[in-house]
Design a protein around this nucleic acid. Structure first.
Length: 420
RNA sequence: GCCGAGGUAGCUAAGCCCGGAUCACAGCGCCGGCCUUGAGAGCCGGUGGUGCUCUGCACCACGGGAGUUCGAAUCUCCCCCUCGGCGCCA
């Protein structure tokens, strides 16, 4: 959520941001109109309340006849205050709705652009593998080795769900453990949060209302199936105030993520776009002045996973048009999958500045006597499992149909070197 | 799910029964001032949010919301959370 004072005092900045992101600017015009009326009403209400408060204090001191007159007069004032306050709270609701739908302001270093085509490649690691035989896709490999079962996944849960079996299931588990161990050594505290969250939490990190149709909703309890561990982990500290010395705080979490992927039907073969997937997440709470440096180190921490797995990848700096709603700056990491011949987005590392902190009211106190300020939050996938598995199977496949297990995973698979 | 006790400012904690006399008692912490060679003690002031005609004035804030009233921390109703006890249950 943007600071209301910022929108009010610096509408030009907000207008540029909306324009660059491809959002309608009337969001801002509407805000300014509603806010101006709100302030006018608040001012009038405050003036009347002053009268009410001082007269209410006088009343017990008055003689009976005077008292009666005053009380009659007060009734009219109170009536007017009630009208004003009703209108004020209506305006507040409208204004909040507008502000909740306003995206974060991109950082100066973010390139202006319209779509993913305007993203900039800032790093490359390794090179796409060249084969001396026709490489298979991960879904062919998965079925041939009987380690991924799409049919039965669809049978028990629907299309977009799949079952990992045997060495596939073990590979999944090995990857989770490997990632968590790497991140723990990088200084992240491992947490295992609930996989359902309440409405406050999805508002806090910005998925609600913008992405509400992409989440699974349990109507009866008004709970939401975790769309990314960013949500429960960031909201761990909802409504909290840190001491400055507590920051920065780094968390890593393994948690299944659920996405309805409403309306997306193209490119659904394989496991690159599914309804449930495992993900190891990184979340940081940091001092505002450090946040963009922290983004760089977050990116390196996520990259370390792919480097360890020796998978070729590239890093994209997202342009304004492709930037997520809550993010001020985002790097995507794309691993190469030679079978389907695509670069797969396996991680997205973002700095949200105070956008999420403001929504979730996560603050810190610079000094014990000073008033609290919002922290900055960051988040990166470190990383999404299915696409990593896809890239891994396709990169490590052998001519004879077997798949070599990456060295770093072997300790997690009892030393096994090959899936056959 | 049932019964009971609670939720007051950064923290501790009065007030609630009996609505108005303290601008929400008081303590701790912290900040500023006075004092001091310095620190401490002591004394004074401050310590959340918002609005405006913004060196000031005002409004709001006692878990959240609604109501009663000229006036609500205080009375009524609904909801949330915490802690006990009971029940249920991997």
């Amino acid at each position: 959520m943007l600071d209301i004072a910022l929108i009010r005092n610096n509408p030009g900045l907000v207008r540029t941001s909306l324009k660059n992101r491809g959002y309608p600017e009337d969001l801002l015009d509407e805000f300014l109109r509603v806010d101006a009326e709100w302030r006018k009403m608040v001012d009038e209400s405050n003036r009347l309340k002053k009268v009410r408060n001082s007269v209410a204090d006088e009343i017990p001191k008055l003689r009976d006849d005077e008292k009666k007159n005053k009380i009659d007069e007060m009734k009219r004032i109170v009536e007017r205050i009630k009208e004003l306050d009703t209108r004020i709270s209506e305006l507040e609701n409208v204004r909040n709705e507008i502000v909740l739908n306003m995206p974060n302001i991109p950082h100066d270093s973010v390139p202006v652009g319209r779509s993913s085509e305007d993203n900039i490649t800032v790093k490359e690691f390794g090179k796409p593998r060249v084969f001396d035989f026709p490489p298979k896709t991960h879904f062919e490999i998965g079925e041939d080795l009987d380690i991924i079962d799409f049919t039965r996944g669809a049978k028990i849960a629907g299309s977009g769900f799949y079952v990992m079996k045997g060495d596939g299931a073990r590979l999944e588990r090995a990857l989770i453990n490997y990632m968590l161990d790497v991140h723990r050594e990088q200084g992240y505290l491992e947490v295992f949060p609930p996989a359902v969250v309440n409405r406050q939490a999805v508002i806090g990190t910005g998925q609600y209302p913008k992405l509400k149709d992409d989440m699974y909703w349990i109507e009866r309890d008004d709970l939401w199936l975790n769309p990314t561990a960013e949500v429960p982990v960031t909201n761990l500290h909802m409504d909290e105030i840190f001491d400055k010395k507590d920051l920065p705080i780094y968390y890593t979490a393994y948690l299944p993520s659920f996405r309805r992927e409403a309306g997306r039907h193209a490119d659904t073969r394989g496991i690159v776009r599914v309804h449930q997937f495992n993900k190891v997440e990184l979340v940081k709470f940091v001092l505002p002045e450090k946040s963009f440096d922290e983004l760089e180190s977050l990116l390196l921490d996520a990259e370390a996973i792919l480097q360890g797995l020796e998978l070729p990848y590239r890093v994209k700096l997202l342009c304004t048009g492709d930037l997520g709603f809550a993010s001020a700056k985002t790097y995507d990491i794309e691993a190469h999958a030679p079978g389907i011949n695509l670069w797969l987005e396996v991680s997205s590392c973002s700095c949200f500045t105070d956008f999420q902190a403001r929504r979730a009211r996560i603050k810190y106190r610079p000094e014990p006597h000073l008033k609290s300020e919002f922290v900055h939050t960051l988040n990166g996938s470190g990383i999404a499992l299915p696409r990593t598995v896809a890239s891994l199977l396709e990169n490590y496949q052998n001519r004879d149909g077997t798949v070599t297990i990456p060295k770093v995973l072997r300790p997690y698979m009892q030393g096994q070197e090959l899936i056959e």
